[in-house]
Write a protein that binds this DNA or RNA. Structure first.
Length: 850
RNA sequence: GCGGGCGUGGUGGAACGGUAGACACAAGCGACUUAAAAUCGCUAGGGCAUGGCCCGUGCGGGUUCGACUCCCGCCGCCCGCACCA
């Protein structure tokens, strides 16, 4: 036989699985179900090595669960709407649809050789009318249930591309594509009422036991619950009071001014007959809203000229300003400034010469205030006096709560719980997205489309060569009949945020061709996703939106109540990284080189062509511009899918980044070749020859079954693989009989089969086993063989290992003590004296304290 | 600023509070070979007075018979959030 040849065996076994329909998800028998899902990819053009790692992890789980007697659902699809398709079409003159579907074809063709146990019959792309039509049906149900509404909202508007931009698409205040200065513009937009679920989404995080703590924390922070108080400030000119929200009413005595958001109704009203104010407000509209820019942005304000009364200091008046740093979206859009206890307020006060007054004083002496620096938020040793509750620890949560109670009791304000979470604006002025299924009728207003008219399909004859939304300027697409009055009407031309598409695809996979968004029976059977796997970058938005959608879909009857938390367990995997090779040009600018152009030696790295020395930046995120990318297709061509799968799971824990190295991939390939040769050697053994060490080999085998099973169950793939290496080494050195070695190699193949399924099948067949390895039940460790008859006990002297003794497992403690004290090292250390203490942990360790 | 995580050989990393460095990469030595590659075997945390002893998981303390692991305080790196009142 020739050596290990993945190019032959991999297609062979993939065909065998396909012919047998091995991975079709069925509801057969009374097997428990298991739904494993990896976050579906965006069809960018080619698969990435990160996809390989993500899907390999899911595949290990899926194959393992299948072997342990589960009906497994393991589907794949494409998150296929989005801007890149439009940009590619604009750049190349093609059509977004063509570009997207061509990419999907390419990526499917690249994924299939990896041998994932996917049920390809369930595949869909979110840009399929069959899918987005059902999404439109969902939208209409949400609308009817009051989960969607329309209102004016301020958005990032690119005046050149004539579209709304997401915050991430605004760079240094300019549109990422057009380079135009982004404006803040008010548009009528559709919103999901996710804020109705703020408390529920927050509270339910506690129940997500199999989610990473980090993700749960990020979600909790994103929802951002805070307890505070709304306090009305009375205007001295008799106008309506201005309500401010504060989480720190204990600092009220230090309040010296009010600041309104430029979008605050009072500010707007004033701007109508005050040109300076109007200019100021217009100016802030142009302001960049990205984090980085906000941080740098100067705090600016303008005095409105009117004042309010201080609620707790009789006779005191406070000027009212408009400040560019006050957000309309949070609280009431109005704050009181307390410069003595807030850095931002202090900056503002200093800039405009506003008063700085302390809120707290020392006990018994009202004239001595604390240091003029800010009162620290952490507990100071000084006991400040709280004017409202009279307690010492002003800055403690108890102090804040007490002050809220005090304000309420005095009738000066009302306690409020606020959330940072805002409603989810879903309108996008883009072509390549799911059309929002409503029409605008002159007589009836905004009218939902009839369900029987769904899907509202995107027109294909569009002009995408000029900026703006092609749906808006399409000659006929907008024209339609009002579903209510039958008169002429116009379609909504906004499409949905692509996050909507990915917020329910997991439910659709349970019945991808149902004529309603879900099939209740299928959804009830397959939901929830038992194991969800994806990148940490989706820790907040995608997962939060999906949690909201599952709740909304329950309200509208599309998911059972048991599925309102759609993902039972979540695993966030690390990236695949690669070293960057860089040299410098004459101007000291970096020049990047592809890994294949660099020769890496012990002493350093040099360019193969010129011998020029190359700097190595290790473990960097793969990026085309840095030329440190590895194309999985090349890897598979060179080494086969099993090697790629084995390598991405080896060495690094799955939640951590793994660095792709050519040497590592080569080593994985060699190892699989060794296993294959081992199988070949065992196949050629003399079946009648007596062996030695059968018992030892089988004990090691059962230990390995136990360890690998535990490793897979706990996402310890790297540790499981290490155990498989160790067992392979044991087996290759074993002199056991043919029968024992055959049993060992078959078990090894089974244990490797989730990671390297093709090689495993080949070994299975080579050893003449019945059927396919994918249909073989997972091996079970014989617990009686896990316990050794004799154990080697380390002997510590004062907690440091000094010696060891091998004793029968059940040797009485007293006997162990005797043997330990008789040990050379112990005797030498004791030098005739008696030990102070002797600790014997049976089967574990002996510690002699001197 | 707020919140969270991580620091172990040349490298990736392993280790229910119980033999620190499993497994692998890179390295060295040896076998095979005319030779090289491949393959196989062996060595390998550091130090020293080397059949033995000392030190060692970022630093300093603590709990414990025993600490990479638990607690407290530092230092460094990484991530998330943030004009959120």
């Amino acid at each position: 036989m020739a050596g290990y040849d993945p190019t032959t065996i991999e297609p062979k076994w993939q065909s065998a699985w396909e012919a047998a329909g091995s991975f079709r998800a069925t509801r057969e028998g009374d097997k428990p179900k298991y739904y494993v899902l990896e976050m579906f990819p965006y069809p960018s053009g080619r698969i990435h090595i990160g996809h390989v790692r993500n899907y390999t992890m899911g595949d290990v789980i899926a194959r393992y669960k299948r072997a342990t007697g589960h009906n497994v659902l393991h589907p794949m699809g494409f998150d296929a709407f989005g801007m890149p398709a439009e940009n590619a079409a604009m750049a190349s003159g093609g059509h977004p649809k063509t570009w997207t579907y061509d990419n999907i074809d390419t990526m499917v063709a690249q994924m299939k050789p990896l041998g994932f146990s996917l049920d390809w019959s369930r595949m869909f792309a979110t840009c399929d009318p069959e899918y987005y039509g059902q999404q439109q049906a969902l939208f209409l149900d949400f609308l009817e249930a009051g989960l969607v509404y329309r209102r004016n909202a301020v958005v990032n508007w690119d005046p050149v591309d004539m579209t709304v931009l997401a915050n991430e698409q605004v760079i240094d205040g300019k549109g990422w594509r057009s380079g135009a200065e982004v404006e803040r513009r008010e548009l009528t937009q559709w919103f999901f009422k996710i804020t109705d679920f703020s408390e529920e989404l927050l509270e339910a995080i506690d129940g997500l036991d199999d989610w990473p703590a980090k993700v749960k924390l990020m979600q909790a922070n994103w929802i951002g619950k805070s307890r505070g108080i709304e306090i009305p400030f009375e205007r001295t000119d008799g106008g309506d009071p201005i309500v401010c929200y504060s989480t720190r009413p204990d600092t009220m005595r230090g309040a010296t001014f009010l600041a309104l958001s430029p979008e605050h109704p009072v500010a707007r009203a004033l701007a109508e007959d005050n040109a300076d104010l109007a200019d100021f407000i217009a100016e802030t509209r142009k302001m960049d809203t990205t984090e980085a820019a906000m941080e740098k942005a100067e705090k600016k304000g303008i005095d409105t000229g009117f004042t309010v009364r201080h609620p707790v200091i009789p006779g005191a008046e406070m000027p009212v300003w408009i400040g560019n740093f006050v957000l309309m979206e949070y609280g009431t859009g109005a704050i009181y400034g307390c410069p003595a206890h807030d850095q931002r307020d202090l900056d503002f006060a200093r800039k405009y010469g506003l008063e700085v007054r302390h809120a707290f004083h020392m006990p018994g002496d009202e004239t001595v205030v604390t240091d003029t620096a800010l009162v620290p938020d952490k507990s100071e040793t000084v006991a400040y006096v709280d004017h409202f509750a009279g307690i010492g620890e002003v800055t403690s949560q108890a102090g804040i709560d007490a002050s809220i109670d005090w304000f309420e009791a005095e009738g000066l304000g009302e306690g409020q719980v606020k959330y940072r979470l805002r409603d989810w604006g879903l309108s996008r002025q883009r072509y390549w997205g799911c059309p929002i299924p409503v029409v605008h009728c002159e007589t009836c207003g905004v009218v939902p489309e009839k369900k029987e008219n769904l899907p509202i399909e995107l027109p294909e004859d569009i002009d995408i060569s000029i900026p703006g939304n092609p749906l808006d300027r399409h000659p006929t697409w907008r024209n339609c009949i009002c579903p209510k009055c039958g008169g002429p009407a116009l379609r909504e031309t906004d499409t949905m945020d692509t996050f909507v598409d990915s917020s329910w695809y997991f439910a659709r996979f349970t019945a991808p061709h149902a004529e309603t968004p879900t099939d209740p029976g299928e959804a009830a059977y397959w939901m929830n996703v038992d194991q969800y796997i994806g990148g940490i970058e989706h820790a907040i938005l995608h997962l939060l939106y999906s949690r909201f959608f599952a709740r909304a879909m329950h309200i509208t009857g599309h998911l059972p109540e048991t599925a309102i938390e759609p993902f039972d367990a979540l695993f966030t995997q690390g990236m695949v990284t690669h070293a960057i090779y860089v040299t410098r040009d004459e101007q000291d600018r970096p020049v990047y080189h592809f890994p294949e152009d660099v020769e890496v030696h012990e002493s350093g790295a040099r360019l193969g062509a010129t011998g020029e020395e190359v700097e190595i930046i290790p473990s960097a995120k793969m990026s085309k511009s840095k030329k440190n990318v590895v194309d999985p297709v090349n890897i598979i061509t060179r080494y086969g899918a099993d090697t790629a799968r084995w390598f991405v799971l080896s060495d690094s824990p799955p939640e951590r980044d793994v660095e792709w190295t050519a040497a590592g991939a080569e080593a994985a390939y060699k190892h699989l070749g060794r296993v294959w040769m081992l199988c070949d050697r065992i196949g050629g053994m003399d079946r009648a020859a007596p062996g030695e060490g059968d018992d030892e080999l089988l004990r090691a085998m059962h230990k390995t079954i136990f360890d690998v099973t535990g490793g897979i169950e706990s996402f310890g793939f790297n540790a499981a693989i290490a155990k498989l290496y160790a067992f392979t080494n044991t087996l290759s050195k074993s002199k056991a009989s043919y029968g024992a070695q055959r049993q060992a190699i078959l078990t090894l193949a089974q244990l490797m089969s989730p990671m390297t399924p093709h090689l495993a099948e080949d070994i299975w067949a080579h050893q003449g086993s019945e059927g396919l390895i994918v249909d073989a039940p997972w091996p079970v460790a014989d617990e009686s063989l896990l316990i050794e008859d004799s154990v080697t006990l380390p002997i510590q002297i004062n907690g440091k290992r000094r010696s060891e003794i091998t004793v029968a497992r059940d040797l009485p403690k007293e006997e162990v003590e005797k043997l330990a004290l008789a040990d050379d090292s112990v005797a030498r250390a004791l030098d005739g004296a008696a030990p102070k203490k002797l600790i014997v942990v049976p089967g574990r360790i002996v510690n002699v304290v001197i």
